[in-house]
């Protein structure tokens, strides 16, 4: 069953075309990595999926519900309330974590379940503690984000995203703001999610991470999907010239 269906999506900023006819389907349990140079549109695609950006035309379905469709060449969105409901099936992990600095780590994780999902505080806290254990930060429950290292903050951010029980997790360069020696603690958490068959869409610059964590890798350039394949094949035998050059340039 597809969790995410993206069909012929275009996104324009004035004259600039950020996404040019992108189609992509993600099945339940898949971990898909998107690679490509800066400005290739990979982050924009992710941001369109959870409505941080509006598309110009095309269709996006999340969990078989239509977030946006195109009528007479114009993208049509449902009312805001409906958008929020549909997008709650996705959760995002940001490059710069974006934790709420005035809340403790535990509160960062419980704030959406209590205020948005209407869960009892005690229930939300119990689930948050399980999530903290999963990311290995039980002892940081009552610390504030400023008291944590970057890697720890990103693990809290992952726990916060998981707390709304999404069908698909979106990662926007989750390791790019981290020192190289601590990226592994974040990657380990994401790989554990992959083993538990969490559906994931991961935008990354880290090719080893893409190779080791993803079941499928997509290469984007100039707003288009140029090539996609299982990681072993995509990295070993890139078909398109552009991907060959990209892989050469980052080595």
């Amino acid at each position: 069953m597809p969790v995410l269906q993206i069909e012929h999506v275009k996104k324009k900023y004035g004259d600039f075309t950020a996404l040019n006819d992108v189609s992509l389907t993600i099945e339940k349990g898949e971990a898909v990595a998107i690679i490509g140079s800066s400005g290739s549109g990979k982050s924009t695609l992710l941001r369109c999926v959870n409505n941080l950006e509006k598309i110009s035309s095309g269709t996006i379905k999340i969990n078989n519900e239509t977030l946006v469709q195109t009528v007479e060449n114009k993208a049509v969105y449902p009312p805001d309330k409906e958008i929020r409901r549909i997008c709650m099936k996705t959760a995002m992990v940001f490059q710069h974590f974006n934790l709420f600095p005035h809340l403790t780590c535990l509160e960062n994780i419980t704030v959406a379940p209590t205020h948005i999902l209407g869960k009892e505080k005690t229930v939300a806290q119990m689930q948050a503690k399980e999530l903290l254990e999963m990311v290995g930060l039980t002892h940081k429950a009552d610390s504030y984000p400023a008291q944590l290292s970057g890697g720890q903050q990103q693990r809290i951010a992952i726990a916060r995203a998981l707390a709304i029980e999404p069908e698909i997790m979106l990662f926007d360069e989750p390791t790019s703001a981290l020192d190289p020696e601590i990226t592994s603690e974040v990657i380990n958490v994401i790989q554990r999610l992959a083993q538990q068959h969490m559906t994931m869409l991961i935008v990354t610059h880290d090719m080893r991470f893409a190779k080791d964590s993803a079941s499928r890798v997509i290469y984007m350039d100039e707003g288009k999907i140029v090539e996609e394949n299982v990681p072993e094949k995509l990295f070993a035998n890139p078909e398109s010239l552009r991907l060959q050059e990209f892989l050469k340039s980052i080595r």
Binding site: N50, N51, L52, D80, R84, C87, M88, T90, A91, M92, F94, H96, N98, L99, F100, P101, H102, V111, A112, H115, I116, L117, R160, A161, I164
Partner: peptide, 27 residues
Amino acid sequence: IDKGQHEAAKTLGFTPWQTMRIIIIPQ
């Protein structure tokens, strides 16, 4: 307040008003 705070709240399902009340104003 950083734009990332609004975005994080939005992706967690907060309405703009809830974002203001629970996330932005306290900061």
